[in-house]
């Protein structure tokens, strides 16, 4: 069967099934199990009211449990096991972890990830704030923001191709087609550079791609936050003779700190999971490995589920503080 047709049928079955489930379960509850009439009408309405939320929630809870909650525990369990031939598992304790920490490639990935975690959120938030502030009162500000926001729609793989062209290096005696090498030679560089093959610095050239994508996100949110600052505070500062820099750093920034933190943590999470960019541009060669790509290597190239799961748990461990903090804040807000 043609996959497009299959897709169409899935949409019909999926959507129809969902609607049918919700409608049917609701009807069953109201008409058959607890009809709102007869001698027990009042009691029935209450009981139906107690069950109905769970009917509404059931499919979502099933999928959330199966696709997000269960894997956390299953991966934790796998990280203590070693897969033997014939679908057998043996408990090996922390051996996967100790083996992994002894691997230079893992330490390289961990170190690189730390570097990514420092540079990308800082640079994206910084640039985002800069653009948000600069375009705030500009007549064509919305056009500028649109363009800087645009990379958000581009896939990591597409961005990887885009930046491979930027970093392209050609032999010295022919015309350069990568704009970076072109500018490098124009401003006095001696020979075209293979930017992605210079250890240590190449990680930064990869980070540029993610910063390029994430800045728009930071800008949109910070721009809304800047607009939300009460005018009076700024007017008061002007009357007191504050200069624009003082207004920005001493009046505006303190008022949007919580938003900056939200943006920073959101980008941090995106950075932690970065996979496609490294996979498509260097595949971890030339010392650019990161955790997510290391994990993919272990799982699907080396077929080592134990160590792959162990490295996935490291990513989970790094996310956990943010997770706890988010949940804590959400609970605080609801009270």
């Amino acid at each position: 069967m043609h996959p497009a047709l299959q897709g169409l049928i899935t949409i019909i079955i999926g959507v129809g099934g969902c609607v049918g489930y919700y409608y049917g379960a609701n009807m069953l509850l109201d008409k058959v199990l607890f009809p709102a009439k007869g001698p027990n009408a009042g009691r029935n309405i209450n009981r139906a009211g107690m069950i109905r939320p769970w009917i509404f929630l059931f499919p979502a809870l099933c999928l959330l449990g199966l696709y997000l909650a269960y894997p956390v525990f299953a991966t934790l369990r796998l990280s203590f096991l070693e897969r033997l031939p014939g679908n057998e598992y043996a408990f090996v304790g922390l051996e996967n972890y100790t083996k992994m920490f002894a691997e230079p490639k893992f330490n390289e990935a961990l170190l690189n990830n730390m570097l990514w975690l420092i540079v990308v959120p800082a640079a994206s938030t910084g640039f985002g704030l800069l653009v948000a502030q600069l375009t705030d009162r500009l007549r064509w500000g919305s056009v500028a923001k649109s363009i800087i926001f645009m990379p958000m729609a581009i896939s990591f793989v597409g961005a990887a191709v885009i930046f491979k062209l930027v970093y392209e290096a050609r032999p010295e005696d022919v015309a350069q087609i990568g704009i970076l090498n072109h500018l490098y030679l124009l401003f006095g560089g001696d020979a075209p550079q293979q930017w992605l093959q210079i250890p240590f610095w190449n990680s930064f050239f990869l980070m540029v791609v993610l910063i390029w994508i994430q800045t728009g996100f930071a800008m949109v949110i910070l721009s809304a936050a800047l607009r939300g600052i009460p005018e009076e505070t700024i007017e008061a500062a002007i009357i007191d003779g504050a200069n624009p820099f003082q207004i920005f750093f001493k009046i505006k920034i303190p008022q949007i700190t919580s938003t900056i933190v939200v943006v920073w943590t959101t980008i941090t999470i995106a950075t932690l999971k970065v996979f496609d960019i490294v996979f498509a541009m260097t595949n971890g060669q030339w010392e650019t490995q990161v955790l997510a790509n290391y994990m993919y290597d272990k799982l699907f190239r080396a077929n080592d589920w134990g160590m792959g799961s162990a490295s996935a748990m490291i990513i989970m461990l790094l996310v956990t503080p943010i997770l706890v903090w988010n949940v804590y804040n959400a609970r605080k807000e609801m009270r």
Binding site: P71, L78, I269, I322
Partner: peptide, 12 residues
């Protein structure tokens, strides 16, 4: 669950 990395979900 909003921030759980989907990397964990792959093998299970």
């Amino acid at each position: 669950l909003l921030v759980v990395p989907l990397q964990l979900a792959l093998i299970p």
